[in-house]
Design a protein around this nucleic acid. Structure first.
Length: 683
DNA sequence: CAGCCTTTAAACATCG
DNA sequence: ACGATGTTTAAAGGCT
């Protein structure tokens, strides 16, 4: 009955919806626009109620969901800043140490991608495919690991310094030596603080680095995105109390200003630093840079030195104020001349950048693995260790299997080592999901492939479960999925609600809206059949009907494919995917046996499993179901839970499904199929 | 541009 | 009277 009344939580007005992103276009547009005005009103009793009820629901995760949401955003920002800073700082000095700088360049790129104006979580969602988002989240975890590594390095560095220190003591130039040491120590402290800060952020879920794909040449730099958040502290940290050196310790150039500087620096190659090999600054993207905040901020001369911004020296740990560039140069030459201290600082910075690069490499590798796993096989064969994809060709297969249970593989997988080449061109992760997410309307498309939905879902199960991301599926497909996942393939409305809330964080909010949509879909689509039961009524899926609707789209599928391909810079779509598409579109239903063209078939089966269905027999819909994976069990048991016999469809005209012989009723689909074959009800 | 689909919003009807 | 369910209708956006 009431179950937990789904509950949910936050209702959020229609407006909220939009938020969701990906679909943004639609959601927002639709709801928002259309009724914008009314929207508020929309709340209607129901909504109000629900809202009130609050997360009661199963999980009551509302807050978590929101948190996640928020965290994602924060993380992105922080990551952006962090990367920018690191890159920027290194850059200038980096010239000296070019090699790294090169890679460093990439960082900015990725950053830029992320940033582009402060992206709202929703936007991010739109931009990033679920898998990508997932990756993002995963990165938070990865970061943690990285931090450890980082720490170790720091320790080593520290040791080195100490060693030097000792040496220095012994040596004559103590005066200077001490000074240097002090400075170095400061640097170390800074680093440590930075680390801590990062850790803290991570703990809060604020930091997450995006793998990025530095695809192109760097381009736009971060837009305004850079927020003042914490970065400043990173370096600043040291400044904290009592830091002699440049007493100014407080703010260091790392803050926004610095970022801005960075941007500028990129835009115009600093005299000092020769363009890095990789640094494709020139790409004409500079304009973008300007736009962002720095421009706004009076920022200094763009022509300025990369280490100079906001009137201060951006040298790590140095915040010395310099009236103008000239003064700054002077300062640079005097304070940051080529000496041990500077060298050490530079080294530290290098390490920082290295760390980031390593991280980038790891993430990139992960991304590749993910993509490969999702069939998007990158142009290059990736032999990497990832056990996941054993067979290149049958990627789909692997995917399925893998995803099946542990979708989290992505999460769990420890990044293999860096080596993996990053495919630069490829747009940021394009997971299967990306396909959909690709554009606003994507979601629909997805749904078209119902089958894929399951695999997709399976793969990103965890993701959707925890991230407040709107799933790229239509309500109809989701409802169907929910129903099919159950052993008896029937659910009460409330159970459907619960499934939604359980499976998608997104549906833990705006309950009034989506519930209404669910009901609306149930009523509207013929594929959903209401079966009365003693206790009430349950909803089943008339697979045939469901499939019927797609045909139109069928044609669409090609388009989809096209989209997908375009989306992926590479036509990564592989056969498997296409097969899946085809499958979904085609009424294989008729004979399950043939359904699967190879890989495709595999997908389906899995899907169910993953979906979280606890080991259930997947009664897959007749159509897609694998050749009868379904356990016998459902054959009869499927009846309506409470009173099978009674089952009868109310509204459904057609073949009275029903008549579902109780005994046979079992698989609704079965009957549907058969009956349907005979005749269509239809409207 | 038309037609279809999906999503949202809402009004209404039933039922417990 | 309420709230959960269901049905319907309408509007808006996107896609084909």
């Amino acid at each position: 009955m009431m179950v937990e009344s789904a509950s949910e939580t936050i209702r959020s007005a229609p407006s909220g919806q939009n938020g969701v992103g990906s679909l943004s276009a639609q959601a927002d547009g639709g709801g928002g626009a259309g009724t914008a005005g009314t929207a508020p009103a929309a709340g209607r009793d129901a909504s109000g109620r629900e809202a009130a009820s609050g997360g009661a629901d199963s999980n009551g995760e509302m807050s978590p969901a929101e948190l996640l949401h928020f965290q994602q955003q924060q993380a992105l920002q922080v990551a952006r800043q962090f990367l920018l800073q690191q890159a920027s700082s290194l850059n200038s000095p980096g010239n000296n140490d070019s090699k790294q700088s090169a890679s460093a360049v990439q960082v900015p790129v990725s950053v830029a991608m992320m940033s582009q104006q402060m992206l709202t979580p929703q936007q991010m969602q739109q931009i990033l495919s679920p898998p990508q988002l997932q990756a993002l989240l995963q990165q938070q975890q990865a970061l943690m690991l990285q931090q450890e590594y980082y720490k170790k390095q720091q320790e080593q560095l520290h040791l080195q310094l100490l060693t030097q220190q000792q040496a220095g003591k012994q040596q004559p130039k103590e005066a200077l030596g001490n000074k240097q040491l002090a400075f170095q120590q400061q640097l170390l402290q800074m680093q440590q603080l930075q680390q801590q800060h990062l850790l803290n952020l991570q703990r809060q879920g604020l930091v997450s680095l995006q793998p990025s794909q530095a695809s192109g040449p760097l381009q736009a730099l971060p837009q305004a995105a850079v927020c003042p958040t914490d970065l400043p502290q990173l370096w600043k940290g040291e400044g904290a109390p009592g830091q002699p050196a440049e007493d100014s310790g407080r703010q260091e150039g790392l803050d926004l200003a610095s970022t801005a500087v960075t941007a500028t620096s990129f835009a115009s190659p600093p005299k000092v630093s020769p363009p890095l090999s990789h640094h494709p600054l020139p790409n004409g993207q500079p304009t973008v840079l300007t736009s962002r905040r720095d421009s706004s901020s009076h920022e200094e001369t763009p022509s300025s030195h990369p280490l100079y911004g906001h009137g201060e020296c951006k040298w790590p740990g140095c915040e010395t104020l310099c009236e103008d560039l000239g003064q700054f140069i002077k300062h640079l030459n005097t304070e940051h001349a080529l000496d041990d201290r500077s060298t050490a600082q530079c080294r530290v910075q290098m390490q920082v950048v290295q760390q980031l690069e390593i991280q980038l490499a790891k993430e990139s590798e992960r991304l590749q693995a993910m993509m490969a796993h999702l069939h998007m096989r990158p142009s290059e064969p990736k032999p990497f260790s990832q056990p996941l994809n054993p067979v290149p060709g049958s990627s789909s297969f692997s995917k399925v299997t893998v995803s099946a249970d542990p979708f989290p593989d992505g999460l769990v997988h420890p990044p293999t080592s860096a080596a993996a080449p990053v495919t630069p061109l490829r747009p940021p992760g394009l997971g299967s999901a990306s396909l959909h997410s690709g554009g606003p309307a994507r979601r629909r498309s997805n749904d078209k492939f119902c089958s894929p939905i399951s695999s997709e879902l399976a793969q990103n199960h965890e993701f959707y479960k925890n991230a407040d991301v709107r799933p790229p599926f239509t309500y109809a497909s989701l409802i169907r999925q929910a129903i099919l996942e159950t052993p008896d393939r029937q659910l009460t409305l409330n159970e459907i609600y619960n499934w939604f809330t359980r499976m998608f964080a997104y549906f833990r909010r705006n309950t009034a809206t989506w519930k209404n949509a669910v009901r609306h879909n149930l009523s509207l689509h013929k594929c959903f059949v209401r079966v009365e039961n003693v206790k009430g009524a349950v909803w089943t899926v008339d697979e045939r009907e469901y499939q019927k609707r797609r045909p139109p789209k069928m044609t669409g599928s090609p388009t989809l494919v096209k989209n997908m391909i375009s989306g992926l810079s590479y036509g990564a779509l592989n056969a498997s995917y296409q097969a899946a598409l085809a499958e979904s579109s085609f009424p294989l239903l008729s004979n399950p046996g043939m359904l699967n063209p190879g890989s495709a078939s595999s997908l389906l089966p899995l899907s169910q499993e993953d979906l979280g269905v606890p080991g259930e027999p997947l009664p897959s819909n007749g159509s897609s179901s694998p050749p009868r994976l379904s356990p016998p069990q459902y054959s009869h048991q499927i009846q309506v839970k409470e009173e099978p016999a009674e089952a009868e469809e109310d509204r459904r005209p057609g073949p009275p499904l029903g008549a579902p012989n109780p005994s046979t009723v079992g698989p609704p689909e079965d009957r549907d199929l058969e009956e349907d074959l005979g005749g269509e009800d239809m409207s």
